[in-house]
Write a protein that binds this DNA or RNA. Structure first.
Lengths: 135, 135
DNA sequence: CTGTTTGTTATAGTTTTTCTATAACAAACA
DNA sequence: TGTTTGTTATAGAAAAACTATAACAAACAG
């Protein structure tokens, strides 16, 4: 898996790394059972510190997306086909998406345009979508 | 406008403040022409420093949502009915929502559930929605 | 003109976060 | 037994977040 990070961005490196892995899972480029590179290896590849990778992996572990173990390394344990998430995850997620949707609307994006964009992104994931918007 | 901030959260105070204002605009509790409290006043009300409020207001200004001027204070200049945003705003927003949608899908949320939740949130804004999902 | 209100800028300090650097420890397994 | 991997410990540098005071500058009411 090829990763590029913005070193001079305002998003922390470990957060970017975490985001890229999450996207890879949603995109179907990572599946349950797949291994992520060893922390030392990935750190060397990206030219960053081992602990920064470690922090990203720890985030993913606490989110329930990967399992960490010695010798085995980091392994994906959740993807789009694993089944519904633990209780509360959806509601907590909704709270965060609300702010982002509010921003779009406040800035003048047409709500139907927002719907269209969201739908297109979801359709792009292998999990697909079972609900299509109609004008 | 009553605001509550999580002092012990992981989200910076100025960011929370900015988010609450954005949501107020999307919710229709703030319209073009409305004034926000003076920085000193709001800081006193919230029990935080003036510069923290200032930083939030500066963010909102750079996002094109408010205008700042001496004596006049902070005034809303954009809302859901002001018209389409400057070029690039929508695409930049889409990039950010993609990560959030990826997280939902990676964690196992049903895409149709995601669509439903997004639609319900959008419908809750006064700007409403012109596209309804159908099962 | 005077005084008040408001944002703006400056300076400085503390605390927390981010990132790095080294090293040692511990479990798993060939 | 040795290698690979995550884990933990320490330490430090740099940046971000937040606070505290103070002064400056424009706008406007009186």
């Amino acid at each position: 898996m090829i990763l590029t990070l913005e070193v001079d961005g305002d998003v922390p490196l470990y957060q970017q790394l975490r985001d890229r892995v999450v996207e890879a899972i949603a995109d179907g480029r990572l599946h349950v059972g797949d291994s992520l590179p060893a922390t030392r290896q990935l750190a060397a590849d990206l030219g960053i510190n081992m602990h920064t990778v470690n922090k990203a992996y720890d985030l993913l572990r606490r989110e329930g997306l990967i399992r960490l173990a010695r010798r085995t390394g980091a392994v994906v344990i959740r993807d789009a086909f694993t089944g519904p998430p633990p209780a509360g995850v959806a509601d907590e997620w909704e709270e965060r998406v609300r702010t982002l949707l509010a921003e779009a609307v406040a800035k003048g994006l047409d709500p139907s345009d927002v719907t269209r964009r969201v739908q297109r992104i979801l359709d792009g994931f292998p999990a697909g979508s079972s609900v299509r918007p109609t004008t």
